[in-house]
C-alpha cells in the first residue's frame, strides 16, 4: 500500500490554560488515502474547523504530528507553510471569499500570483479551471454579477487552478439553497471521480452523504469513521 496522503498522530490543539483549558482537538489519529472523498461531520464546537485549519496549514498543532503529502507540517516555517498552502492545498470556503471587484478569471488566477516560480500561462490555466467547473461563459463576470452557486463554482475553480493534491471544503454549501447545494455537491463528486482528494467539513448529514467516507467528531475526538461505499 502507498503512503497515505494525510496521516495524523495524536493531533492536539489546546485553547486557554488551566481550568479554562479547552481541547479543540484531543489526540486525533487518522489516515486519508489519495483519491478519497471524506466528510468530517460534527456539531459546532466539535473541533472540525480546527482540524480543517490544521490540515490546510493555517494553524499548528500544540501536540502530535501531521504529515500531508510527505511533509511534516509541524516542523515547517511560515514561509514553507505558505508554499504548502499554495501548491498542495485548495481551499473552498462557506462564504466563497471572492474578491468582489475582480473578474472570475482574475479571482481564479489569485493563487498563481503567489506561485514560485511564476507560470507563463496563468490566464490559460485559469480558463481551463473555470471550464472544469462549467463557468467558461462567465470568465469576465465579477462576483456581484454571479449567483451564489456560480460564485462557489468560481471559488472551486480557484482551489483547483494549480492542481492541488488536496481540496479542503469548509461547509461549501452553507450559504446556498438546497437546489444549488445539490449542484455544487454533484460537481465535487464529479471532481473526486476525476481523482481529486476532497476533505469536506459539514454539520449536515445529507451533504456528508455525498462522501465515500464519513468521520464524525465530538469534543475534539473522532467518535466514528465509516465508509459509505467502496472507494472507487
Amino acid at each position: 500500500m502507498n503512503t497515505p496522503l494525510i496521516k495524523t498522530e495524536n493531533l492536539t490543539k489546546i485553547y486557554g490554560r488551566g481550568a479554562a483549558e479547552i481541547r479543540a482537538l484531543d489526540g486525533v489519529d487518522f489516515e486519508i488515502e489519495s483519491g478519497e472523498f471524506v466528510a468530517i461531520i460534527g456539531a459546532s464546537g466539535s473541533g472540525k474547523s480546527t482540524l480543517m485549519n490544521m490540515l490546510g496549514g493555517l494553524d499548528r498543532p500544540d501536540l502530535g504530528r501531521m504529515f500531508i503529502a510527505g511533509q511534516d507540517l509541524g516542523q515547517m516555517s511560515n514561509k514553507a507553510l505558505a508554499k504548502f498552502r499554495n501548491e498542495t492545498i485548495g481551499f473552498v470556503f462557506q462564504q466563497f471569499q471572492l474578491l468582489p471587484k475582480k473578474s472570475a478569471r482574475a479571482n481564479v488566477m489569485l493563487p498563481l500570483q503567489y506561485r514560485r516560480p511564476r507560470r507563463e500561462d496563468e490566464k490559460a490555466l485559469a480558463e481551463q479551471s473555470l471550464a472544469r467547473v462549467g463557468m467558461s461563459d462567465r470568465i469576465a463576470h465579477k462576483p456581484t454579477e454571479l449567483s451564489g452557486g456560480q460564485q462557489q463554482r468560481v471559488a472551486i475553480a480557484r482551489a483547483l487552478v494549480d492542481a492541488p493534491e488536496l481540496l479542503l471544503a469548509d461547509e461549501p454549501t452553507g450559504a446556498l439553497d438546497s437546489k444549488t447545494s445539490t449542484d455544487v455537491m454533484a460537481l465535487l463528486k464529479k471532481l473526486n471521480a476525476q481523482g481529486i482528494t476532497i476533505v469536506l467539513i459539514t454539520h449536515d448529514a445529507d451533504i456528508a452523504a455525498y462522501a465515500t467516507r464519513i468521520i464524525t467528531m465530538r469534543d475534539g475526538k473522532i467518535t466514528a469513521d465509516e465508509r459509505t461505499e467502496k472507494a472507487p
Binding site: N78, A82, R85, N86, E87, F91, Q97, L110, Y114
Partner: peptide, 11 residues
C-alpha cells in the same frame, strides 16, 4: 484569503 492561497507575510 491571499494568505490561505499561498501569500507569505512578506507578500
Amino acid at each position: 484569503l491571499r494568505m490561505a492561497v499561498g501569500a507569505r507575510r512578506s507578500d
